[in-house]
Design a protein around this nucleic acid. Structure first.
Length: 295
DNA sequence: CTCCAGGTCCATA
DNA sequence: TATGGACATGGA
């Protein structure tokens, strides 16, 4: 059992609202309003982990295989990153006090922490899958991919899946990808990313060492990764708070609503609005996404 | 049927 | 530097 303290500013209800946003999410299972199950593919074995959010901490237990101390440490670190537990949200709220447009959303979602995708290949793949299609369809595509080549564990009648390694994705044929509704462009892009990561040319640890500008430039070198995808990965995987997926249609729709417009604001206009969010663009974007969810 | 989805690349001017 | 079309499919 591993115990992880939760920060003072933390909203469990909003976290679970986000976690439950798609019935087709397959890389973790929401069991109740305070329990999540996730399968971790560690060096040479799979470990199923149950996360119980209780009071001011959450507790990791392992219903199937017990992790070694090193494995436990890796899982703990993953979870701290997954729920972004180390960010000082008060600093964020202080900066956003100055923006009357977005402030109501920030206020309504107090304690919401960004849900991240700590695995680099998963984050990049998801950004590619999500390009230019609606979110439900994107989840359907991801589910097909993970069920096809993801690692899995059967426990008490339920199959748990982990997002596949680059190697596994590279075994998928064109025909199989087509059957999973991936466009040929996306197949090409995902294979490029898989090869970069597999070969060691692209590493999360190296990207984390770079400045925001350099990390973004490195990601955009990959075919299929444009400004939106690069910023998406910078915010959801690498934790850059200034990352800003300007072209994001969810962001546009949320702003359209907040501004009470009948059409979406222009990119130029959004850039102007975002000047008030300096340093916290990623968090504002995440809160605006959340504001689009229905209860 | 048409338009839009958590975009990106490439050709053209 | 800016704009238009292709890409694939699903849902409103």
């Amino acid at each position: 059992m591993i115990r992880i303290p939760l920060p003072k500013v933390f909203n469990k209800k909003l976290l679970f609202q986000y976690l439950k946003r798609s019935p087709n999410e397959i890389t973790f299972h929401v069991l109740s309003d305070s329990i999540v199950l996730k399968l971790f593919p560690l060096a040479d074995r799979l470990i199923l982990c149950q996360l119980d959010f209780i009071g001011d901490e959450f507790i990791l237990t392992f219903p199937d295989t017990k992790p070694s101390p090193e494995e436990g440490k890796a899982i703990k670190e993953y979870c701290i990153s997954w729920f972004d537990l180390e960010t000082d949200l008060d600093a964020f709220y202080h900066v956003l006090e100055k923006d009357p447009i977005v402030k109501p959303v920030i206020h309504n979602h107090r304690g919401l922490r960004m849900v991240k995708a700590p695995d680099l290949f998963e984050a990049i793949s998801w950004s590619i899958i999500g390009q230019q299609i609606n979110l439900p369809f994107a989840y359907t595509c991801k589910k097909a991919l993970v069920e096809k080549v993801g690692k899995k564990l059967l426990f008490e009648g339920i199959t748990y899946y982990a997002f596949p390694e680059p190697d596994a994705v590279l075994t998928i044929s064109d025909e199989t990808f087509r059957a999973m509704k991936f466009s040929s462009q996306k197949v090409k892009y995902i294979r490029i990313a898989a090869n970069e990561i597999k070969s060691g040319k692209l590493r999360k640890s190296e990207l984390e060492e770079l400045s925001f500008i350099d990390a973004k430039a490195r990601l955009i070198e990959l075919k299929g990764i444009g400004n939106w995808s690069a910023n998406y990965v910078l915010m959801r995987c690498l934790g850059f708070k200034e990352a800003f997926p300007l072209e994001d249609v969810g962001l546009h729709n949320a702003l359209k609503f907040l501004l009470k417009r009948d059409s979406k604001p222009s990119l130029l206009e959004i850039k102007e609005l975002a000047k008030k969010w300096s340093g916290w663009e990623a968090y504002v974007t995440f809160y605006l996404w959340q504001s689009l969810l229905k209860d």
